[in-house]
Design a protein around this nucleic acid. Structure first.
Length: 349
RNA sequence: UCCCCAGUAGCUCAGUUGGUUAGAGCGGUGGACUGUUAAUCCAUGUGUCGUUGGUUCGAAUCCAACCUGGGGAGCCA
């Protein structure tokens, strides 16, 4: 597979890539169909953004300035007022902040489009350019979107099993023998929902030695997530209500003052496939968080206005589309489930 | 970005106590033979041994840095 990535004329003609791309197509069609049938509107959020504070890591710069001859201000900084948009611009790392605006007017919306992260992530589950599905629901809480995630996953798994049995049989035979069985099992069984606090207890009492010790308040390491999803549950598990200190500023504070209404869906073999939360709709609480985390408040004005002028409780999540394709097909490397993978030091064709 | 492993012929790989002209299989090419069907037989290999530099009388082999890929970790989806 690594070798094939170097040959753009060959890779798409192989049986593996053909099967992956057919399943990928089925999954994306099924996602749109699921949301459409449930009354969601597809909102295409911008790919170019001038907000450098979307909160999810390094961004790619978008500019038409001449790199050999960059205009400078009197202070010697780069003069972005002469750039194409008259200010700094980047490729988006998430449509969430934008789509929240539309959730608060159209109630049930989702984005499905490319996102870009300039992180130096060299792993089999990260891409620099990947597609993300982000539903956002007004008047929903964390449990609502946890169940939405579960329903959506079951719907698209069922669609793949029904529409692509030939390709799934191929993956079962050649890539991963469990791939059909685990999807079939999941379609008609309830997901395990678990509080972070309970997960910590399970990890502490499981008798297994971890390289990183477990304690309430720590971020779960890969080895912990893997134990929960692969050994303890043996299926995707939904973890909820994480400590506030390890999560993003926009997640809704719980009453206990310690945790935040966040959830992750952990899939065996892949890890985090979905990350979501209830959004903090109370302006004073949000401002307090922005201050605590030392974020530039002036960058979040439109986001604050969304609370200031008639606020609405809402929640949503982000699904890494390629991670979903990886899980469904059993393909181990995420670079093999996208037509033209982009990763650090790698952007051929 | 960190740790580990790998990079030798078109492909898959062998080759280290450092030693003369660096190997095999497959493929390719030329020929022979043939009721073949993964044909067979004979012939045929001057390859920046990933890159750059260093150690040495001598480096594919030892050292350093870098590049690319794989596995793991971090970041996250």
């Amino acid at each position: 597979m690594e070798y094939l990535r170097e040959y753009a004329h060959l890779r798409p003609r192989t049986n593996v890539t053909g099967a992956v791309m057919r399943v990928r197509n089925t999954l994306s069609q099924a996602i749109h169909r699921f949301f459409h049938e449930h009354g969601y509107l597809w909102v295409s959020t911008p790919i170019i953004t001038t907000s450098d504070c979307e909160g999810a890591g390094e961004m790619f710069r978008v500019s038409t300035l001449d790199l050999m001859n960059v205009p400078k201000t009197e202070q010697g900084n780069v003069d972005f007022s002469q750039d194409f948009f008259g200010k700094e611009a980047f490729l988006t790392v998430s449509g969430q902040l934008n789509v929240e605006s539309y959730a608060c007017s159209l109630s049930k919306v989702y984005t499905f489009g490319p996102t870009f992260r300039a992180e130096n992530s060299n792993t089999s589950r990260h891409l620099s350019e990947f597609w993300m599905v982000e539903p956002e629901v007004a008047f929903a809480d964390l449990d609502d979107v946890a169940h939405l995630a579960e329903d959506m996953l079951k719907y698209v798994f069922k669609a793949v099993l029904e529409e692509r049995p030939d390709d799934m049989a191929f993956f079962e035979q050649r890539i991963n023998k469990d791939v059909v069985e685990r999807l079939t099992r999941m379609v008609d069984s309830d997901f395990v929902h678990m509080d972070y606090t309970d997960a910590i207890e399970i990890l502490k009492n499981c008798g297994k030695k971890f390289e990183y010790p477990v304690e309430w308040g720590v971020d779960l390491q890969s080895e912990h997530e893997r134990y929960l999803a692969e050994e303890h549950v043996g299926a995707p598990v939904i973890l909820k209500n994480y400590p506030r200190d390890i999560k993003a500023f926009y997640m809704r504070q719980n009453k206990d003052g310690k945790t935040v209404a966040a959830m992750d869906v952990l899939a065996p073999g892949i890890g985090e496939i979905i990350g979501g939360s209830a959004r903090e709709e109370r302006l004073d609480v949000l401002d307090q968080r922005i201050a605590e985390m030392d974020l530039p408040a002036e960058e979040y004005e439109f986001y604050r206005d969304l609370r200031r002028y008639g606020t609405v409780p809402h929640a949503g999540f982000g699904l890494g589309f390629e991670r979903l394709v990886s899980y469904v097909t059993g393909m181990q490397n995420i670079r093999d489930v996208i037509p033209f993978p982009r990763a650090p030091k790698s952007a051929q064709f």
